[in-house]
């Protein structure tokens, strides 16, 4: 089976996430239980949404007594970044059968996106079945562990001592995902502009600042890439120019 190798490589790429997803899931289980959700409710939320930050946002707002519609809209805004993940994966997975795309979309978590796009950027011409196999390979150690972590946190119910600073496992993970990608000028520009804009827009309603800052970062990356290309044209571009002359 020629896709097995890609699936196994996906599992290997997803495995390191386990170390942060397990405590993060457990933390959500604890928070949800403390907010008064029972085990079934906690599990339903975590398995229907599979997006930690938005789950925290929803539980926080509902237990603060916010209107359900407002809580849902806020949590959805937190997840809007996934539309960009969806768009970014489409050139690679867009030709897959509809049910495969639907399944891939249901489980499109940050970690799956990060691992998959890193691989697809390195090997853009890999055949579709291998790209699909890699994607679901990444999910194998990620999604069940998220469910298990949540259940563990909810059933143990024990407080995770604050001195473990597990709140910071999430930001650290995001930094660790991005840092290895910061090896070109356009990527550095994108990251710098996006962070600066996100800090400057911190007053904006939650989610909207994130979207504006992301758009600014993407624009900066694309602009720097264009500027670099103009200064030092790629070989194909030079050929085109010669042909045109």
């Amino acid at each position: 089976m020629r896709t097995r190798g890609a699936f196994v490589e996906g599992v290997a790429a997803g495995a390191p996430f386990l170390l942060v997803i397990l405590p993060f899931g457990a933390l959500f289980g604890v928070v949800a239980t403390e907010a008064g959700l029972d085990l079934m409710q906690t599990f339903a939320l975590t398995s229907l949404v599979i997006a930690g930050a938005s789950q925290f946002a929803l539980v926080q707002m509902l237990s603060d007594g916010a209107p359900a519609a407002l809580a849902v809209l806020t949590a959805l805004a937190v997840n809007l970044r996934m539309a960009m993940y969806s768009a970014s994966l489409t050139p690679h997975l867009g030709k897959a059968p509809l049910w495969v795309r639907a399944l891939a979309a249901y489980f499109l978590v940050d970690q799956a996106y990060a691992a998959a796009i890193a691989r697809y950027s390195r090997r853009p011409d890999e055949p579709l079945p291998r790209k699909i196999a890699f994607y679901f390979g990444v999910l194998l150690p990620v999604v069940p562990v998220w469910f298990l972590g949540t259940l563990a946190g909810a059933t143990l119910g024990a407080r995770i001592p604050p001195e473990y600073a597990l709140d910071f496992a999430v930001p650290i993970t995001f930094v660790a995902i991005v840092a290895p990608m910061l090896r070109s000028l356009p990527n550095l520009a994108a990251a710098f502009v996006a962070s600066a804009a996100a800090l400057a827009l911190a007053w904006a309603p939650y989610g909207s600042g994130l979207l504006l800052a992301s758009a600014a970062g993407m624009g900066a990356g694309a602009a720097v890439e264009l500027a670099l290309e103009r200064r030092r044209p790629a070989p194909e571009a030079q050929d085109e120019r010669r042909n045109a002359a």
């Binding site: 995902i177 356009p186 996100a198």
Partner: peptide, 12 residues
């Protein structure tokens, strides 16, 4: 530039 823009904006 989605990954190097969105994740830093989320995390900063």
């Amino acid at each position: 530039y989605v990954p190097t823009a969105v994740l830093p904006a989320l995390v900063a």
